[in-house]
């Protein structure tokens, strides 16, 4: 864990909507230089958590501090360091794209006009089109531009790529990696497209029913889970295999595929020595890990 102060600190936050407990004693810190993947099923509380960070929601219990300020009391100076792409994609529909960009840029002293031009060219945004007439994908690209145009220190992306085509998604992921080159920044991304997310994140937070199940570095998470393929050289595997923390086991004709948790590579190799077999250790994809953790 980083020794510096976190830019977001969420302590024991609870939030209810009527009878639904959207957040249940959530604790979390966001440090600079990280891309955090916020994962969870629909209704897990991801968007609620993100909205607490920027002060759109206020917690029923606990507190949320962003840039050292109570999130509910964030002022223009703090908010000008936060970019937010939200899943509903609310924009001002009657403006043209260029009018909207000019309008939003008027609020930010650090607006980067070169970045704006480059982004418009790369993402092929039709600047003279009316925002209300844009397709969902174009709208999403515009929302991303408005969130990154002032080079925020904290970029919050709530389902940012759900309506982008595969090429735009790849461009978008490259863009995130460029943004994080500046170590002063942090990105938190909530998405269901886990194959995309795992390419960029270095920290994972998995939520379920308003609780955080996992909050660790992505490398640590990947080390915790592995898939072991065992091929018996004699053609027969013993009925009981000497592995602990086995989550899943598939066996067929002298071959077994095991999914194990908290069992290091050395431990696996040691355990395999007692068997007359070949072993192959593979890391799990984020999607597989997610299914195990949240399933």
């Amino acid at each position: 864990m980083s020794s510096e102060n976190p830019i977001v600190q969420i302590c024991n936050v609870c939030k209810r909507f009527g009878k639904i407990k959207a957040l249940d004693k959530v604790d979390m810190q966001i440090y600079r230089g990280r891309i955090i993947g916020l994962l969870g099923s629909n209704g897990a509380g991801k968007s609620t958590l993100l909205r607490h960070i920027i002060g759109l929601y206020l917690p029923d219990e606990g507190h949320c501090t962003t840039f050292g300020c109570d999130a509910g009391k964030l002022g223009p100076k703090e908010l000008s360091k936060i970019g937010y792409v939200h899943q509903e994609g609310e924009l001002i529909d009657w403006m043209t794209v260029e009018q909207l960009i000019r309008y939003v840029s008027a609020y930010y002293p650090m607006w980067n006009f070169e970045l704006e031009e480059k982004y418009i060219a790369d993402f092929e945004i039709p600047t003279s089109a009316r925002v209300g007439t844009l397709s969902p994908g174009q709208r999403q690209r515009l929302a991303i531009l408005l969130a990154i145009g002032f080079e925020p220190e904290l970029l919050i992306l709530d389902e940012p790529a759900s309506t982008l085509d595969p090429i735009a998604r790849a461009q978008f992921l490259d863009l995130l990696l460029q943004i994080i080159q500046n170590e002063n920044r942090a990105i938190i991304i909530s998405s269901h497209i886990l194959s995309d997310v795992e390419k960029v994140i270095d920290h994972a937070v998995i939520m379920k029913e308003g609780r955080i199940l996992v909050d660790c570095s992505f490398d640590q998470l990947r080390e915790r889970f592995s898939r072991v393929r065992i091929n018996s050289l004699s053609g027969v595997l013993p009925a009981a295999l000497p592995f602990e923390n086995v989550l899943k086991c598939q066996r067929s004709n002298g071959e077994a595929i095991l999914t194990v948790q908290d069992f290091s590579q050395e431990q696996i190799e040691q355990a395999a020595q007692s068997l007359d077999c070949q072993i192959e250790i593979q890391p799990l994809s984020l999607e597989d890990i997610y299914k195990i953790v949240a399933g």
Partner: peptide
Amino acid sequence: SSMLISGGRNE
């Protein structure tokens, strides 16, 4: 509005 500009609750 959920479109974030730099204005806070006071603004």
